[in-house]
Design a protein around this nucleic acid. Sequence first.
DNA 1: GTGTGTGAAGGGTTTCACAGCA
DNA 2: TGCTGTGAAACCCTTCACACAC
Lengths: 207, 207
Amino acid sequence: MKKISDSTIRRMSKYFRSLEQLIDKGVETVSSDTLAEMDGITSAQVRKDLSFFGTFGKRGFGYNVKSLKKQIENILGLYRTWNVAIVGAGNIGRALTEYAEFKKQGFVIRLIMDKDKNKIGKQVHGLTVKDFAKVNELVKEEQIDIAIIAVPSDSAQPVADKLVDAGIKAILNFAPRSLKVPKDVLVKYENMAVEMESLSYYLSNKK
Amino acid sequence: MKKISDSTIRRMSKYFRSLEQLIDKGVETVSSDTLAEMDGITSAQVRKDLSFFGTFGKRGFGYNVKSLKKQIENILGLYRTWNVAIVGAGNIGRALTEYAEFKKQGFVIRLIMDKDKNKIGKQVHGLTVKDFAKVNELVKEEQIDIAIIAVPSDSAQPVADKLVDAGIKAILNFAPRSLKVPKDVLVKYENMAVEMESLSYYLSNKK
DNA sequence: GTGTGTGAAGGGTTTCACAGCA
DNA sequence: TGCTGTGAAACCCTTCACACAC
């Protein structure tokens, strides 16, 4: 399996969403040009990205929307569901339990944990907040595949360590802190402050 | 002003946060090595990034933590506050009004809007949800600098159009859709589904 | 004719390696 | 001696351009 760049994978994810849109509109065929336009990139980029995984189009014609969507679904592993645990029942954690896009793509939030005694036992959109101290059993019981960290910065690393102990191999981290994990564990970051600060930089520096 | 890459800006943002951490610990001096270690990158990268903006270190010594932090603060435009409006009083929008990291970095949420009559007038963490139909006046009144879009995908583009009309030049978009805006408007994306799908890809493809 | 698939070229970012200064 | 600042090299990703299949 050749190494595929991160940016390609992320664009695949975007193509996938664009294809969903096209299906909703009843469109059956799409060109790399159209797809590129929808995602704000170039058509060569679209074709190159897809070419890493196979040849899905017909020359002179384009791509069949439904079948391309199915292909990408397979590539990204979205033909199945993934069990997700959220750590941190604060504002962000609670909001994510209800995030529609997760549900639609087969990410099932099965567990929300916190260490705060005042939060444990409370209901959050149909889930009961569980004690993070029991992370090992809980992760096993619910067969969790992916963990989302939504705790304050200072707790992020200790939480990650415990998740790794519990056997988690994939983490999405909302805390603005870089995590150290073994190399068979993948961490992705959702760093809202970083994006805001890019905007701040831009606003400060345009003439 | 020479063009500085996006990745450099984002790393600056991370250095900034790492420096804050060091200040909290009472550390006074830091080497590019340590900073690199904290952010999971190489020391050459740190030095190269900083070199785009000036020379902040002392050879054989390292960087003064406080003064480097102040420098980056200036570079990113964080010496001042920015007025922020959130569009969409759903789960995500409401959670963001309380996001601590925003407050700390001088992003002040002054306005939350929605088009849903059931939400307009309700209180969200001390803010009253306002009618998005009045976006033009509201943006002017509150002197909004940055808008955050936290509405369903289908509404993201129309909302963006109205924000642009209202004079907004910087947008953080949480809807998983690429936005078309004039080129003097900057859009950053916070696409949680994309990150989750990268994790899904990784889990599906490790042997 | 039309739009894909893809080597080759181009551009940009990261890493290397070391001169230079504290 | 130790660590920065930085040209040069290496690497990777994007864009070009066109042969080729439908």
